[in-house]
């Protein structure tokens, strides 16, 4: 299937091979993620969605191949080089990865404290602004252990975007969220992407929201990536893709293709 977006690639994975022990996760994976677009990585469990995000973040090196992020091959960079590239990235981990000895305010403000000369009042304002964007108020002094799963993930998302990164990687951002908060995060993603020009790469099992908000879908199957927009995937005729989408998913994808994304 052809790449749906001819824009400049902000992230490009080229002929990547990666195995864990005897098992090959990717034999020859290639795909590209366009600048200022929302790309949703979909696929069954164990197809390597989170691993793709970890490779882009430089947390997992491939056995061979290139992972080019904003013009730099992160697979070949030293830890110091990776630190430079990561300043342009924000990442939401599946379990939040918040520091459990720090409060919400300290967690979200940590990148600002480390990399800027902002005063405490400015940091507090910036933290409150990001927390409000993800629908959270009055949680400054709570520890991660005192938050629900959905709140934890939203705090982690606030931390991921606090430095205004160019690229945001989100691992299952909708997991554990109620419908109003799923819509709130979808709207935030659209704003980040279409108003502020951020590139979003999101893994999700949440079929409806993935189809609704994505500009491009990358479907991982059998160590390969199939790219397309929701309508293309629904009408591809590929049995594996049809199986993965299911009848409801395919119908929704066709409807979205007919009516436009948003």
């Amino acid at each position: 299937m052809a790449n749906v977006d001819s824009r400049e690639a902000h992230v490009e994975i080229d002929s990547v091979r990666l195995g864990f022990g005897e098992r090959d996760v990717f034999e020859d994976l290639s795909c590209r993620f366009a600048r200022a677009r929302i790309t949703v990585l979909m696929g069954g469990s164990g197809t390597g969605k989170s691993t793709v995000l970890r490779m882009i973040a430089g947390l997992q090196r491939p056995d061979s191949g290139r992972v080019v992020v904003a013009g730099e091959d992160v697979a070949a960079l030293s830890e110091r080089g990776l630190q430079r590239v990561r300043r342009r990235l924000g990442m939401l981990f599946q379990d939040g990865a918040l520091l459990d000895s720090m409060t919400v305010l300290e967690n979200v403000g940590l990148p600002l404290r480390e990399h800027t000369k902002l005063g405490e009042a400015e940091i507090r304002d910036a933290v409150h602004e990001r927390l409000a964007a993800v629908g959270l108020h009055d949680v400054d002094e709570l520890l991660p252990g005192e938050l629900s799963g959905g709140m934890l993930r939203r705090v982690a998302l606030a931390r991921a975007i606090i430095m205004d990164p160019e690229i945001v990687l989100c691992d299952e951002p909708f997991s554990g969220l109620d419908p109003p908060n799923v819509e709130r995060i979808e709207a935030l993603f659209r704003e980040l992407c279409h108003d502020r020009g951020l590139t979003l790469i999101v893994t999700s099992h949440h079929m409806a929201s993935s189809l609704r908000m994505s500009d491009q879908i990358v479907l991982l199957q059998h160590g390969r990536a199939v790219l397309g927009d929701p309508g293309e995937l629904a009408t591809s005729g590929d049995a594996d893709i049809t199986d993965f989408l299911g009848a409801d998913g395919a119908a929704l994808a066709r409807q979205i293709a007919r009516e436009g994304h948003r």
């Binding site: 973040a57 630190q83 990561r86 990442m91 599946q94 990865a97 520091l99 990148p111 480390e114």
Partner: peptide
Amino acid sequence: AMVSTQQLDGLRMMSID
């Protein structure tokens, strides 16, 4: 425990060693 809950990876992603 910080390794298993990806807290160290979280720090790396904030360019904190």
